[in-house]
Write a protein that binds this DNA or RNA. Structure first.
Lengths: 329, 329
DNA sequence: CCTAGCACTTTTTTCATTTAAGTGCTAAAT
DNA sequence: ATTTAGCACTTAAATGAAAAAAGTGCTAGG
């Protein structure tokens, strides 16, 4: 357990470093806590021995280590209440009664991304939790039609397909079969059921049944199993630790690719706000992911905010708490 | 008019510079054309006076100026026929009979982006050319429903809306009215017609008509007037002239934002392949946009490839020609 | 236990020097 | 009238030495 003074020093170093990314020396801290810089140096040495601080070179000031951030988040950070301005911006979105929940969430995370300069993500429910609810088709012209898929969690997608020598009747009949026989199936198992339950039936009365089956099969396998929305993709460029390092930027951008992100956002078991610092997450050792699950009615998902390790933890956690509250009621 | 030799020298400089971004000196060129470096220097001086070449500093080799690229594209460039490998990759996409045209285009431009390391864009027909064809609704639950909008050009979008105390009947009736009365209207005028032709009618028999009207109004104004697909957004980071300049990257990324891009892609009147070098385009003085309109049946749009000014003009133009051919037949 | 003080380390900045690449121009050669 | 050899000159990039800045660790005394 750290002493009161050590806590104070660590907190100050973390917060100063978050404000501006320069190693923190003993002098500034000594002024702050009214003791000599030598004393602070001794304490810093101790904090370094404990693995909470690091030096960038032998005679540099200290920067927080990953463990240092962890300790800060777990023990030192005080939640700020949101400032009025931020709150106002978000209220405008939340007050809009006409937006579907998923749009409210997406829009407010867009706002957060802009005000914080971090990347934000909304993930819908996982694929095996998304059950096929309904399929609809809208004919576009002779050969093309749009297939709309709705899941029980309210995830909607549409895809265009092209069919030759298949009548609209045949399509509608097939859709009817799908809706009757396999709605309720987890999306990622629909392909299978399509093959073993639908294909044999339509084989009997649809001439181009192979083609029709293939088209629907592809629509369902293309279905983005999980709804994904990434906002402020290139906000990372605003962060000094990245903007000076193109290679880092590239790897992070790749990890933020639409499909990629799913693998990289942690799966949480509970509903609390989680902070994954550096190597604790799957994206990059230099980023922190702060995320939480939300659940309102039958809609659920995860919202995440991704920034540098020196992100404004207190402010972000405050924001997410506020988001969660507002979503869930 | 340039002499034969000047053409040769300019061509060589442009092509060498495109291969690797270093100023080209007189010595390499002299070997290539069998005359002394002094002669080449004289010619280079002349080409510079004509505004086709530039120096990066008084004693540096030459790099092509914007006019130099222009001259190269207009007079010197020889179209390469596509290499077999590139062709094969694209054929796989084109051969897929089941993909709707717009998906074929999007997927093949994705392939091109990957193989060239340039950003690619597909724009659909312009908003006032997109006429509302059909509106459909799919109820999701008590309060939420999905509205699907289809235009005559085959542009489909869906949006979720939330309605309180509005019955499904009322919604369906309203949709029926829209389909009967204002389908055929350019998308960007639908808002108006909604207000003056639909609102008065539903005012009579829908209790929450204000709410219902607002919801539909928003759906239509949110409709992305022009279908936009941007692939390989951060391929720019692979280009040396950008990866060393974060500020440039940021401005280019901003110009490549979804909605922003529409303003920045030139409007062409004819169907030829157009090359917009540096200041000739609206994106950035350091990029070149090569684009062409396509039209097949009632689907039309523009495809564009965006890269550095030193992009591989011959290869890209070849690719676009090939794309156009394949799309239009 | 705290702190003044100092030797020491490392990075950053500055400046001078050298090297490499390439030019423009002159005068001779073709 | 062109072409070319040759050389003085320019600039950027690389190298290196020296000084300045920031900060540390440790010792010895309060």
């Amino acid at each position: 357990m750290l002493t009161e003074r050590q806590n104070k020093i660590l907190k100050s170093i973390v917060e100063r470093y978050i404000k501006s990314p320069n190693p923190v020396g003993s002098k500034v801290i000594s002024k702050e806590i009214n003791c000599s810089s030598a004393t602070v140096r001794n304490e810093m040495g101790e904090l370094e021995r404990l693995g909470l601080l690091e030096k960038t070179h032998t005679s540099s000031g200290r920067v927080p280590s990953e463990a240092g951030y962890r300790y800060y988040v777990d023990n030192l950070m005080e939640l700020k209440k949101m400032n009025a301005e931020d709150m106002l911006k978000l209220q405008i979105v939340f007050r809009n009664q006409q937006l579907a929940l998923s749009d409210v969430i997406t829009k407010s995370l867009q706002v957060i991304s802009d005000m914080m300069n971090y990347t934000t993500v909304v993930l819908g429910a996982k694929s095996h939790e998304n059950l096929l609810k309904q399929v609809e088709v809208i004919p576009i012209d002779e050969e093309n039609l749009t297939v709309i898929i709705v899941t029980d969690k309210g995830h909607v997608e549409h895809k265009n397909i092209k069919l030759q020598d298949v009548s609209l009747e045949e399509v509608r009949k097939t859709v009817g079969l799908i809706n009757n026989l396999i709605s309720g199936t987890p999306i990622d198992e629909v392909g299978n059921k399509l093959e073993f339950e639908i294909k044999p039936i339509i084989g009997n009365y649809v001439k181009q049944h192979e083609q029709l089956y293939n088209a629907f099969y592809n629509v369902f396998t293309d279905f983005t199993n999980q709804e994904i929305n990434i906002m402020g993709r290139h906000k990372m460029l605003e962060q000094p630790e990245f903007s000076s390092n193109i290679e880092k930027i590239k790897t992070v951008f790749n990890k933020l690719e639409d499909q990629e992100i799913i693998k990289n956002i942690e799966e949480d078991n509970d509903n609390n706000i989680k902070v994954y610092i550096g190597n604790e997450n799957n994206i990059d050792s230099d980023v922190t992911v702060i995320q939480t699950k939300f659940k309102k009615g039958n809609e659920e998902g995860t919202i995440a905010i991704i920034g540098p390790k020196r992100m404004e933890y207190d402010r972000v956690v405050g924001l997410l708490e506020y988001m969660k509250e507002n979503i869930e009621r």
